[in-house]
Design a protein around this nucleic acid. Structure first.
Lengths: 133, 133
DNA sequence: CCGTATCCTTAACGATACTG
DNA sequence: CAGTATCGTTAAGGATACGG
């Protein structure tokens, strides 16, 4: 009993992703997107296109190295488009792809939620710290 | 010219949170929530209450140490409630607070989005890797 | 201007062993 | 069962300097 040929119209990247499984590739994508700088870069680009330096100023505290690395990962996963203009001096503009717009919107909602509750969260933190000396 | 007294009806935890600012406390909260294990723990608890060991099995790959640490942070920020039953053997149940339900829902949406696009993302990754030898 | 390369420091993580 | 403690390892991160 051999395995019958698959109907191979599409290269069979069709599978069920599940972040709860240790080896699922979706985990690393989620990690890229929700990483310390990934989230901020995506949400910033949700405001509109940015050039490298401007984005670096917007995302306060990020180093050149980490911003560069983060943008590469986001580009690789198809969330960000990198547009190079071969002028002198060179000009590189980063924009969100359609996919990037979707996740940026989700992340923006999450941030809005958390920011709105920050006063209450700080109160809860203080109470917790008082209970755990 | 002295600073006039604030109308202090509330203990003035009223401020504008902004994740883009390096020192804003909302950053660490976002980091807790979107951290490698924070996200998975919150989404798992979105399915219903879990005991420690069951949660550890659900979140495939997490160590005892990291799960414990993650849950403490989530409890401190008021996303998770920890219910201890002093039986023998002891039984500890974790549930989401109202605040936790909100963020878990957001994270679930994000994960659904990413999981749905995983086939396309893998294709994009392969194309990117081919372009960057 | 837009990064990459290098070096170094810190923080995150995992495995294991052990306690209430 | 539900963790904490300790140790060693790995990965993330920052500073700086240099190249296209």
């Amino acid at each position: 009993m051999s395995v019958p040929d698959l109907p191979e119209s599409e290269p069979s990247l069709d599978f069920a992703a599940d972040v709860f499984e240790r080896a699922c590739p979706s985990r690393e994508v989620i990690h890229t997107v929700t990483g310390r700088w990934g989230t901020l870069a995506l949400v910033a680009l949700g405001e509109g296109p940015y050039r490298f330096s401007a984005l670096r100023r917007r995302v306060d505290g990020v180093s050149e190295r980490m911003l560069s690395q983060t943008l590469q990962q986001l580009e690789r996963d198809g969330f960000v488009h990198r547009d190079v203009q071969e002028t002198i001096p060179p000009k590189v503009e980063y924009t969100l792809t359609a996919r990037g717009v979707q996740v940026a919107a989700q992340l923006q909602s999450l941030i809005d939620l958390v920011e709105a509750q920050m006063p209450d969260i700080l109160t809860d933190q203080a109470a917790y710290d008082a209970r755990h000396p």
